[in-house]
Design a protein around this nucleic acid. Sequence first.
DNA 1: GATTTGGTTTAGAATTATTCCAAATATTGA
DNA 2: TCAATATTTGGAATAATTCTAAACCAAATC
Lengths: 144, 144
Amino acid sequence: MRSAQKQKLSDSLSHQLATCGFRFTPQRQHVYSVLLGKLDHPTAEEVFIRAKRELPDISMATVYNCLDALVKCGLARQVSLARGATRFCPNMKNHCHFYCDTCESVFDVNLPAEPGIALPEGFKAAHYDIAIHGRCPACANGGK
Amino acid sequence: MRSAQKQKLSDSLSHQLATCGFRFTPQRQHVYSVLLGKLDHPTAEEVFIRAKRELPDISMATVYNCLDALVKCGLARQVSLARGATRFCPNMKNHCHFYCDTCESVFDVNLPAEPGIALPEGFKAAHYDIAIHGRCPACANGGK
DNA sequence: GATTTGGTTTAGAATTATTCCAAATATTGA
DNA sequence: TCAATATTTGGAATAATTCTAAACCAAATC
C-alpha cells in the first residue's frame, strides 16, 4: 500500500473512532490494518496471532477491545455464523455471508439492495445480518 | 395439550428422527417438548434447566445431543445472533429473527418469501438465516 | 510545564459455552 | 431373546470471552 493511501486510512480510522468517543491508538490502528490485510473473516484469536507479528506485546484483551471499538464505530462487522468463535469483517459494503457448513469458510456475497422486511410496530432496525448456509463450490464437488 | 395432539407430535418427531438415522428417546422427546413449550429462543443451558424439571437426571451433554439431533432432522433451528450462547428455535416456518441489542431478546418476524439472493457459480444454498439487529419496542422507548 | 482525569493496555485469573470421554444403559433389528 | 449399535451420563477438558487491577498514556486543566 502506498504511504499516502495508508495515511488516508488512518485519518479515517482516527476520525471514526473520535466520533464515537474512542481514542486513536497504535493497537487499534494495527488491528484494523490486520483486518484489512486479509479479508478472510478471522476470529479474534486469528487477529491476535496476526497482530502479534508486528506488535508482539499486544494482548488478547486488547484485541477484543480494538475489535469491539471498530465494530462500534462502524468500521467492521461482527459475524456470528455457528457455534464457536465470532468472526470479524471490515467490508462495510452492503453484502451478506455464505457459510460453508462443510469447510466452515465464509464468503462475502454482494447484495443489490437492503432486504426491506416489514417489522411490527415499534421495532427499530439498526442493521441486517444475512447468512446463507450451504456448501461452497469446492465442498459441493469434493464431498459428493 | 390434548393427549391425541401430543401423540401426533411424538409420532412426527419419531418419524423425523428415524428419517435421519436417529433413535427416538425420552430425552429427545422431552427436549423437543421443552422447546415447543416456550418459544423464547432459549440457550442450551436454559433448555437444560427446563428439561430437568421433568427429567432430573438429564445431562448437559444429552441436551446438546438432543438439540443437535433436532436441528439435523429439521425440527429446530440453531440461532447465532451475537457472542455468547447459541439459541434454539422450533419454529420452522419461513421467518427471521429480530435481536434487540439492548435487552438481548429475540423475536420471530414473519417473512413473506425466501429472499432469493443470487449466488456465484457453484455455491449450493441449504438455508437462509436473516437476523435484524436493533431495538425492540420496550427498549426503543425506555432507553434514550 | 506540572497535574489531574479518564480512557487504554496488559497479564492473568475467572467465567461461560461447548465438546470430549469412557462406562453404563437403552433401542433396534435379526 | 440376543447382538449390534446408538445414546446417556457425569465429569474432565477445551475453547471463547470477559473481568480485574495495576501500569500507562494522552488530552484537558491548573
